[in-house]
Write a protein that binds this DNA or RNA. Structure first.
Lengths: 328, 328
DNA sequence: AGAATTTCCGCAAAGGTTTGCTGTGGAAAT
DNA sequence: ATTTCCACAGCAAACCTTTGCGGAAATTCT
């Protein structure tokens, strides 16, 4: 079977292509009689506009780009799911690409987005990206770019983040409500904006409490976190371990389980997470919620704004809330 | 900045558009001198072909569609990641849509795929889809459809599945190697092809062992699985619980933890999973591996075949292997 | 030198849609 | 009965690229 086009409909009905096109979009120039004839036939022939032709002509696609380091991640997947859902409801489709944390692939992917004429892109920066040079062309072409989660330091771009500072502050407050004296805080890749923000905020919060020992470590993966944690626990058992993310938490949990430690009895746990992992365990692990879903919804709404009216680049924050499990 | 097109290049160089087009693809009709001039200018102007125009003209897009009930799922996310990665390496981009297990949205999404002229689609059927009527048009238009994971019963379509029967058999064999006498097996949504296959295979394997009690239950979500498990354990403590999937496993684990049971001492556990969840716990949970990654790679390879040469629709299986944790 | 190739490039159409402009017929206004 | 106006529909260009075909100039062969 071959595809039905405006031309085919117009030939069958013996009218012009433009009349068919207009009838289909209820243009007032077309009489009701003609319009109904056209719509009727279009339905029976199951006409579906060729998006390529439409976009070529109108220069305005219903495609959005979305790039993450990897799709396979507790946080990104919920973000993606949320964006896709809202996009669908608004008639947009989403083209998803992974950078694998490789700036080269990131750049290639941006090119792919451009070639496919996306109307906007969501980007979580690769952890190895040093500058925004590969994004220049997007800005030049005025394709809205909304950065999320791991965002560039530069101002003048659209950023939408979790309340990184606040979530670390919340964590600090919660810790201070307990009589913990020694804290082990394990963060992720120090190159990430979220790492920097969370680390700075946590450090800052404890500055006024010099009697509390705050030990900070970094780990780029769950495996590293596990090793680091093992190492640290061998030296000294802290009162509480703070994990910056699910990746870290997973490593820490493995260590704790392997060592036969029990929380909250032997050691307390606190993490920042979207909740999936913390809720798997019993007792559930107390976490500061960073919802990929909320972030996704906010990002899409912001994108819609960007595409409709040129708005000033800003940094938006999605609030953080505490979920009380039973790990401290 | 406006986009560079073939026309713009041709005007600057004072040659025709067709020459530019041919030069850029190393057509033998074009002299080396002209070709190099063109390529040089194209590079400095950072020419990027308009995919819409190309596709419109060639009727052959570098876009693939992928539909799953939800992206946010331990299994699908790895599948998607694998497909995207291989697609990228082969110059394809992936358009991802979620059906939310709603046949209506599923149908709408197929339409979106068609309108965007994808060259092929991967589909994991929604659990509520009763027939393949909404796919008819895809077949008519000869757009390759590769079903995966939850596939239709019909033959004559491309299906690529985990070795559902074999994985259940493997599970049965493993169980029979131990002196377990009572088994609680919890399966997922009975409407899914994977549920049916796994359940049938498991039942079948135990037919020859009537002295072993095999109790079968169903649960559509982790929460249901948790409830079902609670209920069952209140009546009777089985020797082992077999979980069909991660969803089920999560519910079961919660129940077990809440009840203060310890595996493998009080009860044994066995599941089918891609490994993410089972490896989070200590001891790790023994599982039959169903790798979304392997499935994704196989699916993409198959899709490539479908697009190049019309091959006979077949059912491909991705093998299942045992991962020995410490839960039985 | 004249004929036969070869080399290189341009013309124009096609793909499906959208849209500004033009043109027609008929009804209303004068 | 002439003019004015409106409702309706078609023409043609444009978006950008690809490609069959034809043709001019340069080269090679008698």
């Amino acid at each position: 079977m071959t595809n039905t086009t405006l031309k085919k409909i117009s030939e069958i009905l013996g009218i012009s292509v433009s009349t068919v096109s207009r009838a289909l979009k209820h243009h007032p120039d077309i009489s009701v009689k003609t319009r109904e004839k056209v719509i009727e036939l279009a339905r029976t022939l199951d006409y579906e506009p060729n998006a390529n032709a439409v976009q070529l002509r109108t220069k305005n696609s219903k495609l959005l780009g979305l790039m993450v380091p990897t799709i396979s991640n507790y946080f990104y997947e919920t973000f993606i799911a949320a964006v896709e859902e809202d996009a669908r409801k608004n008639g947009y489709a989403v083209m998803i690409l992974q950078s694998g944390n490789d700036p080269l692939i990131e750049s290639e992917n941006l090119k792919l987005f451009r070639q496919n004429r996306v109307s906007g892109v969501f980007v979580c920066l690769s952890s190895n990206t040093k500058d925004l040079s590969s994004f220049e062309k997007m800005f030049d072409l005025e394709i809205p770019v909304v950065f999320f989660d791991n965002v560039p330091q530069e101002s003048g771009v659209h950023k939408i983040c979790l309340a990184d500072e606040k979530s670390a502050q919340l964590a600090a407050e919660l810790i201070l409500q307990h009589p913990y004296q020694s804290i082990l805080a394990i963060f992720g890749n120090p190159a990430l904006s979220i790492t920097k923000k969370r680390e700075a905020a946590l450090k800052n919060a404890f500055q006024a409490h010099p009697h509390i020992s705050l030990l900070i470590e970094h780990a780029n993966s769950s495996e590293e976190a596990k090793l680091v944690c093992h190492e640290m626990l061998n030296k000294h058992l802290p009162d509480i371990i703070f994990c910056m993310s699910d990746e870290v938490l997973i490593g820490v949990l493995k260590t704790i389980q392997e060592k036969g430690l029990r929380y909250p009895d032997n050691i307390a746990l606190l993490t920042i997470s979207n909740g999936t992992i913390p809720r798997l365990f019993h007792p559930q692990i107390t976490y500061i919620e960073t919802s990929g879903e909320k972030l996704g919804k906010a990002a899409f709404a912001h994108m819609l704004n960007c595409m409709q009216t040129k708005i000033e680049p800003t940094e938006l924050l999605v609030d953080a809330v505490l979920f009380n499990g039973g790990s401290l």
